[in-house]
Amino acid sequence: MPLRCIAVDDEPLALQVIKTYVARLPALELVQTFDDAISAAEFIRQVPVDLLFLDINMPDISGLDLVRALEYKPMIIFTTAFKQYAFEGFEVEALDYLLKPIDMPRFSKAVQKAIDYHKYKSQPAEEELEGLFVYSEYRLLKVAFKDIIYIESLEDYIRIHVVAGKPVMTLMTMKKVLEKLPAEKFRRIHRSYIVPFAKVKAIVNRKVQLASGQELPISDSYSDFIKAWTKG
Rank of each mutant, 00 (worst) to 15 (best):
2 P>R: 12
2 P>G: 14
7 A>P: 07
7 A>N: 10
10 D>M: 05
13 L>F: 10
17 V>A: 05
19 K>T: 13
22 V>F: 06
25 L>C: 10
25 L>V: 12
26 P>I: 08
28 L>D: 06
29 E>S: 14
32 Q>M: 09
34 F>T: 01
34 F>C: 13
38 I>Q: 00
40 A>S: 10
44 I>V: 02
45 R>E: 04
48 P>K: 05
48 P>G: 14
54 L>C: 07
55 D>W: 01
59 P>F: 11
66 L>P: 07
67 V>G: 03
72 Y>L: 12
77 I>T: 02
79 T>A: 05
80 T>A: 05
81 A>D: 13
84 Q>T: 08
85 Y>F: 13
85 Y>L: 08
87 F>G: 07
89 G>H: 05
90 F>R: 15
92 V>E: 07
96 D>R: 15
98 L>K: 07
102 I>E: 09
105 P>E: 01
106 R>V: 13
107 F>H: 05
114 A>R: 13
115 I>H: 14
116 D>E: 14
116 D>L: 08
117 Y>G: 05
120 Y>H: 06
126 E>T: 05
126 E>L: 14
132 L>N: 02
133 F>I: 01
140 L>P: 06
143 V>I: 08
143 V>N: 01
144 A>F: 02
146 K>F: 04
151 I>Y: 06
158 I>L: 09
169 M>K: 07
170 T>W: 01
174 M>C: 00
175 K>M: 00
182 P>R: 10
185 K>A: 13
186 F>P: 08
187 R>S: 14
188 R>H: 00
190 H>D: 15
191 R>A: 01
192 S>A: 05
193 Y>A: 03
194 I>G: 00
196 P>F: 04
200 V>G: 05
201 K>F: 10
204 V>N: 13
208 V>D: 01
209 Q>F: 12
209 Q>I: 13
211 A>V: 10
214 Q>G: 02
214 Q>V: 14
220 D>C: 04
221 S>N: 11
222 Y>N: 00
223 S>T: 13
225 F>E: 00
225 F>N: 06
232 G>P: 15
